[in-house]
Write a protein that binds this DNA or RNA. Structure first.
Length: 316
DNA sequence: CACTTGACCTGTCCGC
DNA sequence: TGCGGACAGGTCAAGT
């Protein structure tokens, strides 16, 4: 979508969100053309014709919104109001599905595409108070980086140095690549044999991309309790967990892509995630497999959802 | 080294 | 109604 576009100007208002030296920005970002957009683990890589790369991490509340053509102020105000009514139902989503949605805004001249954590900024007028960085392109289109909590960042560095970033060096394999076999997974997770299986799969050095939602979902699917110590699990359980991780991630991408275009509709605002989540944020509701009531607890310092029947807690 | 906990932020929700 | 505190969660630094 932004490939081929040339950056004209940049606005940023927060050094944490945009930790870049002004000279580098002037020299290697302004006037640069986007040559390619890639992703590695939870990092988005926007490669530029200057041999520099813009790294973007959304962390928990970041989002990217691409806007073409003029903003229709009146229409956006209406959408904001409607959106607020639905806010109670809205859910955060795993940040790096990077689901790209074509927002249907009838009678509007505006074209928007959003990716990341859904919130009002996707439909409200931009920039808003969560906007940290705005990239303006020479064709008058814009890319907004919004991030309520300022955990995410937009970092410029020479393309050749991306692979030397500490995180890029240590991050594990991509779960949806063919190289991610059960052998690779079991070998890598056993490096964390003394810790809980949930902590192990959340560890980005074991594999890339599993966050709190996918961790709970895949462990439920594999019928493994999140607090189970890795070393206590049978090989067959780890093999099945590997399969479930892949399935959950594939399913989330599929679901996100299929329903998210109705995003701004009242129904769509719920987020497609709820349609496939079996345990996440379903505490108090019946397990889809056995009917037992889903419980919420804390494992690995995270809110954790389990079925007390399907996922037997380990003896302490 | 393996592992756990707290910090980073800001908005929301819950209980008093 | 206001207010303090818990919570949300990806990653890293500091601690055990």
């Amino acid at each position: 979508m932004i490939t081929g576009k040339t950056i004209s100007t940049i606005n940023h208002n927060n050094d944490k969100s945009f930790p870049n030296n002004q000279d580098s920005v002037d020299q290697f970002m302004i006037g640069a053309k986007v040559t390619q957009v890639k992703r590695r683990a939870k990092v988005l890589l926007i490669e530029l014709s200057t041999n520099y790369t813009i790294m973007v991490h959304l962390k928990m509340t970041g989002q990217l919104v691409f806007v073409a053509e003029a903003t229709n102020q009146t229409r956006n105000t209406k959408l904001e109001i409607r959106n607020k009514l639905e806010r109670q139902k809205s859910l955060n989503e795993e940040s790096f599905e990077f689901r790209v949605s074509n927002l249907e805004i009838p009678k509007s001249e505006e074209l928007r595409f959003g990716a990341g954590h859904p919130n009002d900024s996707l439909v409200g007028s931009l920039p808003d108070r969560s906007t940290r960085v705005t990239l303006h392109f020479t064709d008058e289109t814009k890319l907004y980086f919004n991030d309520q909590r300022r955990f995410g960042w937009v970092k410029l560095l020479p393309t050749g140095l991306v692979q030397d970033e500490p995180f890029m060096k240590k991050v594990g394999p991509e779960p949806l690549e063919p190289e991610f076999t059960s052998d690779v997974f079991t070998t890598r997770i056993k490096r964390r044999k003394g810790t809980s299986v949930k902590a192990a799969i959340l560890d980005q050095t074991v594999l890339a991309g599993v966050g709190n939602i996918y961790a709970d979902e895949s462990l439920w699917a594999a019928k493994i309790h999140p607090a189970s110590i890795v070393g206590s699990l049978k090989n067959a359980q780890l093999v099945q967990l590997q399969r479930e991780i892949v399935d959950v991630m594939n399913l989330s991408i599929e679901k996100g892509g299929s329903t998210n275009k109705n995003y701004v509709d009242a129904e769509g605002k719920r987020g497609s995630y709820m349609e496939f989540a079996n345990v996440f944020r379903r505490e108090g509701q019946p397990c889809n497999r056995c009917g037992s009531i889903i419980e919420k607890s804390r494992v690995a310092g995270r809110g954790t959802h389990t079925c007390p029947s399907c996922q037997v807690a380990p003896a302490i």
